[in-house]
Design a binder for these strands. Structure first.
Lengths: 110, 110
DNA sequence: TATTTATATTGCAATATTACGATATACAAT
DNA sequence: ATTGTATATCGTAATATTGCAATATAAATA
């Protein structure tokens, strides 16, 4: 137990859950907002921006990267992180899909 | 440790994280998709629809409700769950905001 | 080469999540 | 009143997440 029963759900459901889960922490929301705000995106800035230690921030960046929400490329000494559009579009699409269908069938229950 | 440092982030960041976290499980994505698909939304159906036990589904429903993504009203013997629009719109807005700003400043780095 | 700077990894303690059997509650129907 | 049906809660085991100090790595610079 304690393990999510991943194989009982569709690939799409698991993908969306991974994306959503990656954003299920305020630090990771803050990272996304910061990456959006600044033009240059160097990790050192992120560490200074957040109220968390360097290892902790590094871990959060790794999770966002694994989920496909950001990407990082080596830029000399430091690393340039930025938002990975495909990942973002996928989860954005989910919400738009729900919202659109909801508009169609409003006030049928509850 | 093990506890998220909620008070170091903005209210908005925490709110969005709570919403995203609630969707960070395939069962909860599946529940949202199912609620969207059917017109009547009775919990018993949800239990039969998912590959999880009744207590587990009940727990997932509770989390979605606490996050403000669904609402449930007593309907005689059973409970009518459906999507709670305000919660959904809030997180949808976050992704649209990112996507819109991203479009503006494309190809500046990475 | 030695030192500094930026980032990642390891190891670990505290806490949270996932899942489910057992049980409780609450209404419906007999 | 008793039984059945729908849902919630409790208790608990297995696993995952969060956070950080210590340490490792790797490039830049002196």
């Amino acid at each position: 137990m304690g393990t999510t029963k991943t194989d009982h759900f569709t690939e799409s459901q698991n993908e969306l859950a991974v994306l959503a889960k990656a954003l299920g922490h305020p630090a990771r929301i803050a990272i996304m907002e910061y990456l959006l705000k600044v033009d240059a995106c160097i990790c050192g800035d992120i560490v200074n921006e957040l109220p968390l230690s360097q290892p902790t921030v590094s871990q959060h960046l790794k999770e966002l990267k694994n989920a496909g929400l950001i990407k990082g490329s080596i830029e000399g000494n430091s690393i340039c992180y930025c938002i990975n559009e495909p990942g973002l579009e996928k989860i954005k699409g989910f919400f738009e899909h729900i919202s659109a269908n909801l508009a169609k069938k409003r006030s049928e229950c509850c």
